[in-house]
Design a protein around this nucleic acid. Structure first.
Length: 357
DNA sequence: AATGCGGGGAT
DNA sequence: ATCCCAGCATT
């Protein structure tokens, strides 16, 4: 199986690989330039920059002699500008400390500014033929799907599993092309969304495909940054005997509440103040008559939370609906929604037309 | 383990 | 709008 993966992959690579300029050479400088440019950058976008960069500074010493401003200028529009600054600094360091020739030792390569474990492995394998698996986003995706890495690939254990797999399957005879083959496979076949599984060479053995997990692998543990937004609503409270009642406004689709105030209220990025809200005339009257204690609330919530959860949390479910009292007070209960085991009364527009409560 | 760093393409 | 891209350095 271990041999099979690399063998099939290399065959696929030979017939399907794209013809890219940095694949025409094993010059460590060219490999370095291409790898830095391609960090978090699509091939299509980086291509032009690579050509211009190599034309402007074809080797380490040329780059070392350039001014940082010129390097940054060429980098303009590519993003992650520390890449350019690091390259320039590293070129000067290579001239100073390594006599202008790119180091071939993995740990030395990795010690250079802007070169981490991925780039060091890529340079060591592609330029110097050493067996170091280069693990990037493509590799994480391909290996986690084909071999079924269920742990998060950015977590400790998942990373270890990917690392083990990549050492297990790397082609010692041609590590540089093996590394590029996995990445190319990830970029052309095993796509993040809508992978081309129908014509995939691993379709009969791929763990993810066989278990219907292609869409959910690789798993990531990093949760998306949660935006705080505010669900705004008005709640009313009134006493009747020993009972305290609460009425909420009605939620419509798209997180809009409507009914108690003039304009539909919608989710906002900042809390809403009561002053900013205009109640419908009928309710203004009720407030003036001290029949109701009425407040506006803005509840900070993460977007994922449902309206029901917000209400439940806000009121701590500390009220029970006295249906009888509702009727006695001539409030027609139009709708109930279950929150947990507690029914919550909702006011709807019909109430507003009844001036008598 | 989490963040910041960027611009662009695909969905 | 959100995710992701041939990641790395810093905290």
């Amino acid at each position: 199986m271990a041999l099979d993966f690399a063998k099939h992959l290399m065959q696929w690579y030979n017939t399907n690989k794209r013809h890219l300029p940095w694949r025409l050479t094993n010059d460590p400088y060219a490999v370095w330039v291409s790898e830095i440019i391609l960090q978090q950058t699509r091939v299509d976008q980086g291509m032009v920059y690579y050509q211009r960069f190599m034309k402007a500074w074809p080797n380490v010493s040329a780059l070392a002699k350039a001014s940082e401003d010129d390097v940054l200028k060429l980098w303009q529009g590519l993003g992650y500008y520390s890449r350019a600054r690091n390259m320039h600094a590293t070129a000067k360091l290579i001239v100073q400390n390594f006599n202008g020739s790119f180091p071939s030792d993995y740990n030395t390569i990795k010690s250079l500014k802007g070169i981490g474990s991925y780039t060091a492995a890529a340079i060591a394998s592609i330029a110097f033929g050493q067996t170091f698996p280069a693990v990037d986003g493509n590799v994480q995706r391909v290996l986690s799907r084909v071999f079924g890495v269920l742990e998060a690939v950015d977590g400790k254990t998942g990373k270890k599993q990917i690392d083990d797999l990549s050492w297990q399957h790397i082609d010692n005879e041609d590590p540089g092309n093996y590394n590029q083959a996995v990445m190319e496979f990830g970029a052309l076949q095993c796509l993040p969304a809508n992978p081309q599984c129908g014509q995939c060479i691993f379709r009969e053995s791929c763990y993810a495909l066989l278990n219907g997990l292609t869409a959910s692998l690789p798993r990531k543990q990093k949760k998306p940054t949660q935006k705080i937004r505010y669900f705004n609503y008005i709640w009313m409270r009134w006493q009747s005997g020993n009972q305290s009642w609460v009425a909420l406004d009605k939620r419509l689709h798209n997180d809009i509440w409507k009914g108690l105030y003039e304009f539909p209220m919608i989710e906002t990025e900042k809390p809403v103040h009561f002053d900013e809200i205009t109640l419908l005339p009928a309710f203004q009257q009720l407030v003036q008559n001290n029949r109701f204690n009425i407040r506006a609330q803005s509840a900070p919530v993460t977007h994922q939370l449902t309206h029901q959860k917000i209400i439940a949390k806000f009121f701590h479910l500390n009220f029970e609906t006295p249906l009888d009292l509702m009727k006695e007070n001539k409030l027609s209960l139009i709708n109930q929604s279950e929150i947990g085991n507690y029914p919550i009364p909702r006011l709807i527009d019909r109430y507003l037309q009844q001036n008598e409560f």
